[in-house]
């Protein structure tokens, strides 16, 4: 039985390798916070239209890696990134790459829901507005509606679009943040523990949403919950002490990982 499933996994992997391309490629990525090194030569590729989960114990560097993908680390004083990360074929740390444009292509959802203290409509419309994506008010209305629909929030908020976004429940706020990220039509969406502040029901909704978003976006998600990684992702990468331990198909990762440390972490022996 074990052999069978392994063979099936291999087959599935081959198929994926053949028709799925890499959206982002990280090569020898190291991150330093001042003198302290947080990531050691990570080589990790992100596949297009795939959910990639980054797991590992606290402080292992998974969030740090995620934040290198849209250069959010730039905002931290004393943070230095070496190595090479490409989005399609562009090196995103190339001096010619504009960080504002990069973040319009690689959106982000944060751990704690952080809607702007403005109306629901304004929260979603802000991104398209600063990037000039809608010419007329009708276009903007359409973008807002589509984004909220993609985030599964439209039916809940369509009658109160102009009420404050901070008045929503935690789960709704997080979906509003996802709608806000989606509204810019990015190619990649980074999610940094998007469900850690949510209750199980809200978590289930967000996970379902991640599933649906996969059709249009490439998603990288950091999570503390291995069950969540198993539920939502197709590929999983395991970090430990700033090193990438293993990157594999999620199915294989949770049944028959290559590395003993992954095995131990998944079995709950540490972390």
């Amino acid at each position: 039985m074990n052999m069978m499933s392994e063979a099936a996994v291999e087959k599935a992997l081959d198929r994926q390798m053949n028709d799925i391309s890499y959206k982002m490629i990280g090569k020898d990525v190291s991150v330093y916070y001042g003198e302290k090194r947080a990531l050691y030569d990570v080589n990790l590729n992100v596949r297009e239209n795939t959910v990639t989960a980054l797991i590992g114990p606290s402080g292992c560097g998974k969030s740090t890696f995620l934040r290198t993908l849209n250069r959010m680390n730039d905002t931290i004083d004393g943070c230095r990134v070496t190595g090479r990360i490409t989005l399609d074929s562009d090196d995103i740390y190339d001096p010619n790459i504009d960080v504002v444009e990069l973040r319009a292509r690689v959106g982000m959802v944060f751990q704690k829901p952080n809607p702007f203290p403005k109306s629901i409509y304004e929260n979603v419309a802000y991104g398209p507005r600063i990037h000039g994506l809608a010419k007329a008010k009708a276009d903007m209305d359409a973008i807002v509606e589509q984004s909220l629909q993609k985030a599964g929030l439209w039916n809940e908020v369509k009658d109160r679009l102009h009420e404050g976004g901070t008045g929503l429940s935690g789960g709704q706020q997080q979906r509003l943040c996802i709608a806000r990220a989606v509204a810019v039509s990015p190619e990649v969406i980074l999610m940094d523990e998007p469900c850690s502040a949510l209750d199980p029901i809200a978590t289930a909704k967000v996970e379902e949403l991640i599933h649906e978003l996969r059709a249009n976006f490439t998603i990288v998600i950091v999570t503390h919950s291995m069950q969540q990684a198993a539920r939502v992702s197709q590929r999983t990468a395991m970090f430990h002490l700033g090193n990438l331990v293993e990157e594999n198909d999620t199915d294989k990762m949770f049944t028959n990982p290559d590395d003993q440390r992954t095995q131990d972490y998944i079995m709950g022996r540490f972390g």
Binding site: N70, M72, T75, V100, E101, L102, R103, A104, G107, M108, F110, K112, N114, P115, F116, P117, Y126, G127, I130, H131, C177, R180, A181, V184
Partner: peptide
């Protein structure tokens, strides 16, 4: 809160837009 700055920067707002649209009003 820094989360407001992160939210705006994450959407691709420039630093000046982040300050004038979100931080300063708050």
């Amino acid at each position: 809160p820094p989360s407001i700055r992160a939210a705006a920067l994450g959407l691709g707002a420039s630093r000046m837009q982040t300050v004038f649209h979100h931080v300063l009003p708050l």
